[in-house]
Each structure stands twice: as C-alpha cells, then as structure tokens.
Design a protein around this nucleic acid. Structure first.
Lengths: 336, 336
DNA sequence: ATGAAAGCGCTAACAG
DNA sequence: CTGTTAGCGCTTTCAT
C-alpha cells in the first residue's frame, strides 16, 4: 500500500496525496476529502524510511541513559519527552545498561540518521568523544555535566557547590570527622563532589583526611563494602557524605548489621533524592536535582539548535539544586 | 558522504562497498581492505533511511511502556533488550506516560515501519485494538496479559492464581475480614486479581463482602485515599490485599497517620515486588513476577515469529510467580 | 569476484 | 490548486 495506490484510487497525483498527508493548505477541500477517503479505505500508512530519506529529517530524538533502572533518569526523561512532544518530535529511549559498548552502539542511531538529535544522560562517555560527534555536525545535548564545545547543549547542577553545602550542613551540626563515599573515577560527578567536600572542610578549617575517602562506584552494594572498609580502618568518623543515595542505602545496611544508629551515632547525607529515601527509616537527607527542568530546558535548547542553529537560552544551563534535610542528618523528615 | 563517494575513493563500484559493509564473503580481501580504508578516511557512515527503504527491514524493535517510572517495567526491558541485542536488534523504548494518546501515537512507529516489531507493556490498550494490528500483519508481542490471537505473542503471570495464593496466606494467618484494593477497571490485572481474591475466600468458606473492595487505580495516593474510605466505612477488616505495591505504600501512609500498626493491627500484601518494599518498615509482603524472564522469553518468541513466522515456544507463555512473605503479613523479612 | 542498472516510497522543484 | 519529473542513498537482481 503506497502513495501511488492512494493517488490512483482518489484519481489524483501522488503529490496531491503527499500534500494532504502533510497538511498543505493549498489543496481544495473536495480533493482533500477524496484523498482522505481513499487513505481510509485502503488503510494506507506512510512509510517512514522513504519519508526520512527524501526529507532528511526523522522528527525523532534519542536519549541514551546509562541505566533505566535508576530512578534519577526517569524524571529527566519526562522533561525531555514532554518538551519534544510539544514540538512534534518523538523520543526514543535507549538503555545502555551500564555497558560502554552498548552505549557506543546507540550512537549509531545518530550517525545513521535514525534520529535527528541525541541527548546523553550518561556520565561515562568521554568529553573528546562527545566533542568529536559535535564537530562532525551531529546535534547533541548532555545532561548532568558541562562540555566545553560551542555546539553541545548542556544542563547540569553545580556538584561542587551543592556538595559544599551538604558537607557544611554536617559540619554545622557539629561533625568534624566526615567520610566521603565516592563514585567511579571516570565520572565528573565523582571528583566534583569530592572537591565540594574538600572545600567545605577548608572553609571550616577542618583538616582533610584521605583515609576517610572510599569509592563505592555509585552502587548500593559497593557502597556498603566501602563503608565497611572505613569502619575496619578504625579511623573515627561521625558522619558520611555519600556521592549518591544508592551508596547511602549501602550505609544503612552496614549500620543495621553493626548496630550503629543513624543519625545519633552516624549522620548521613546522600545525593539524588531517590524515592526510597522518603520511605526508609530514618528518612534520608539528600540533594534534589531539578530533573524534570533539566530535561525540559535542555530539550528546548537542543531543538532550538536543530531547527534554528541557535540556542534559545545559553547553551550551558547551570541549574540550582536543593538540599533536603531529613532525619538521617538530624532533621525532622517532615517533607513526607 | 555516501556510498558512491566511498566507491570512487576506493576505485570500486557502490555494489562492492555495500558488500563489504554487509560482510559478504565474496569480496577479495585486498578489495575489502581498500574499501575499509576509504570508509575510514572519509568517515563514512551508512544512512539508515536508505537502507531500511531498500531492504524493508530496520533491525529495530520498539517497546511501549505505560510509565517508565514504574520500576516493574525496568527489569522487563532488560530482558527484552538483552535478548534482542543478541539477535542483532536494537531496542527503542517509548514512554507513554500514562497517556492513551501518546501510547497510540507510538503505534505509528510500527505502522510507518520505523521498527520491525513491537512489544507492548501496557495494560491500557484494548484487546481488539491489538488484534487489529496483528490482523494487518504487524508483528506484536505483549507482556502482562493474554491476548487471544494466533499472531500475538504473550507472556504473563497468572493473576488469579497468585492472588488466590496471596489471600490464602492471609486467611491462613487467621484473617477473615480482608479488604481488596483494586487497580483501574480497564486493566485485566484488576479484575483477575479480584477474582483470585474471591476464589480464596470461597475456598475457605469466607463470605465475600463487597464493601471491602475499593479502587486505588494502581496509584500510591489513590491507594491511600481508597484505604481511608475503607476506614471511614467502619466495616472491620484486619488485612489488606493491594493489587500492587504502590497502593500498598498508600496503606502504610494511612496507617502511619491513623496510628495503626502493621502487621499486628493490619496485615498487608501487595504485588510487584517494588524495591521500596525491602526498605520500608515493616518490610512489605508481595508477589514477585519474573520480569526479566518475561521480557526475555517473549522477545525470543517475537523475533522467532518475525524471522521464521513461527514461535520457538508456544505463543502464550504463562510464567510462574512467587509470593514473598515479609514482615507486613507476619513474616520475618529475612530476604533482604 | 565485481559492476551496471533498477527501484524501494516518498517529497521538492518546477511547470502549468 | 494540481501534476510531472527527478532523486534522496542504498541493495538487489542480473550480467560478466
């Protein structure tokens, strides 16, 4: 069933059918009706490949996420999706499942022009790799970090700033021996959050103790193991700043096993505002990133670039985050 | 940069380049090397639209999920993804965001041949609608329910059976007044779980009390409101079977507000094995569906159909589920 | 083992 | 307002 069949049935040319399909205003309404009816009767549906090939557009954008399981991404996707949808784009989500190879594989969708633009929500891919794609003329945006390339749209929060804020909060509650649970080394998030941690210590004249740093790879189980290593070292600490909530959950597990009370014996702050943090006892203090807004504004920007070759806002959007103080660091947990 | 450019540079015909690209064995290795080098130097990447148009295949399958936020879907997607990937297919995920219109919109990807096959993980779409697509020759699979159509692959668990098991568990713990929190009416899950509930009562000669049924639309907040309505009725009940964990979370909230203790004053069982159930206090009894297996086996089946026009296994896969007894219904919660 | 030619289904440019 | 023509970039006969 193709466009010529419809044209034949309706007694018009393929062009006219195409015009009707694409909502051109210069078709007589009687003609339009004939065509519509033929489409209806034949059950015709236009072929995307032919369309894309001819028009060199797909009206689709792709989103590569590192792991669809991580709730952090879901809200971002909604922001992307709704904005894109309003502008006539479909959003295709690709789950890289923490797998670098798969992640790179999905890049093919952009290069083979299955999609018009791509949004990366993955901390793993290297800056040069991304810059290289942009140099080749592909339209790219990235959420969660800054890329220094004039054609790459970014939306991110200030890791250093909110980490400093989170750790300062612990310090102001009287803690001086604060451990830091880091994520994997390749992620900017890891070292920027570490830097924020260090700055907070500096600001309050607290010495930096490298033995209080452990890596938990942003993972619950590895976070558990990391904090167990800390306890094993016998260096005293009364608080933990975990670079994400997953690792903070690992801290809960460790404390439960060791009979350590949160927050009276150990205060805890995470990052991401994972939903579980509101349900666990005691509730988890954390940093909320405006995920929906990041997705939405970045998408606005990217689509602006794709269509006008200019960004409606500045291409790098630094977005404010919020420290949520719940019970695990001595708050009341009254936010739900 | 197209295939003729590569051909020119390598001093061969476009056909030969195409053959190299597609791994044809009948190309002399010296020729292959020339071509590969030209591809490399030119940074050529094949255009998907042209390819798809010519070959009438995309090597992609789509997955429409009702809401990507719901963790229930994430594992299913992993099962789909890994199986598809192993067979050379890319998986594109579409988030319908609980929106019927968007959901239907994504169907367009199948009809316009952007994807070769589609997996539905959405309880909302009606049976006839799905059957209709299959009748038109599209390749479709569905997870979570049974569709009576010889060309539709399905994978699902037995709602009636596991609900009967869950409610029997409550009855065996001494409960006779058990409330049921239902999901939205369009979903088979809702009434099948209700039927299992009724069967369990029948089997144990406990009268069915319609006033103990309330609808919470599979949603936490609405589940909370539903159980509040139950309390307001002043009909006594000592246990709740919630048709999913989200609504069960609403029950926790209601109990917290009203000072009702779980499980001593109210026993609770949900469905889905949401991750939160392991962290909340008391831990939540629930029904685990083998999500990964459902996704994987269905995909295996669908791809088999797409390529051989036959199902490797029977087209309707009924998959066993498991009742997980944790603290909320009197268990020890020792599973984590 | 390689190439020439045809065509997948659509839309854009141009003509009328 | 409508039609004719050409071509998007690739793969697939068929021929050599």
């Amino acid at each position: 069933m193709k466009i010529v069949d419809v044209a034949a049935k309706a007694g018009v040319s393929p062009t006219t059918v195409s015009r009707v399909l694409n909502g051109s205003s210069l078709v007589k309404s009687r003609t339009r009706n004939k065509v519509m009816q033929a489409i209806e009767e034949l059950g015709y549906y236009p072929n995307a490949a032919a369309k894309n090939l001819r028009s060199q557009r797909t009206w689709k954008i792709g989103v590569i996420v590192m792991d669809i399981n991580v709730s952090y991404y879901a809200e971002i996707i909604k922001g992307i999706e709704n904005t894109a949808y309003a502008k006539g784009y479909k959003v295709l989500i690709c789950d890289a499942q923490n797998n670098r190879e798969k992640e790179r594989d999905f890049l093919g969708l952009l290069m083979d022009r299955t999609i018009d633009g791509l949004i990366l929500v993955t901390p793993q891919m290297s800056d040069p790799e991304i810059a290289d794609l942009a140099d080749k003329g592909y339209d790219i945006g990235i959420i969660g970090r800054y890329i220094d390339h004039e054609r790459v749209a970014c939306a991110y929060t200030d890791n250093i700033e909110f980490s400093e804020r989170a750790v300062s909060h612990l310090i102001e509650n009287g803690h001086t021996h604060i451990a830091f649970l880091s994520g994997f080394a390749e992620a900017v998030d890891s070292y920027e959050r570490l830097e924020g941690y260090i700055r907070a210590l500096k600001k309050h004249n607290i010495p930096f103790r490298p033995e209080l740093i452990e890596n938990g790879n942003f993972d619950e189980t590895l976070g558990y193991e990391a904090v167990m290593r800390l306890f094993a070292k016998k260096v005293p600490f009364t608080a933990v700043y975990a670079a994400n909530d997953e690792m903070a959950l690992g801290v809960y597990k460790a404390c439960k096993e060791l009979g350590i009370r949160i927050p009276s014996q150990l205060a805890l702050v995470g990052v991401d505002n994972n939903r579980i943090g509101k349900y666990i006892v005691p509730t988890l203090s954390t940093v909320e990133q405006p995920k929906y807004a990041m997705g939405a504004r970045l998408t606005e920007n990217l689509i602006g670039w794709m269509t006008q070759k200019q960004f409606p806002e500045r291409r790098d959007l630094k977005i404010a985050s919020e420290l949520i103080i719940r019970e695990s660091s001595g708050g009341t947990g009254s936010d739900g």
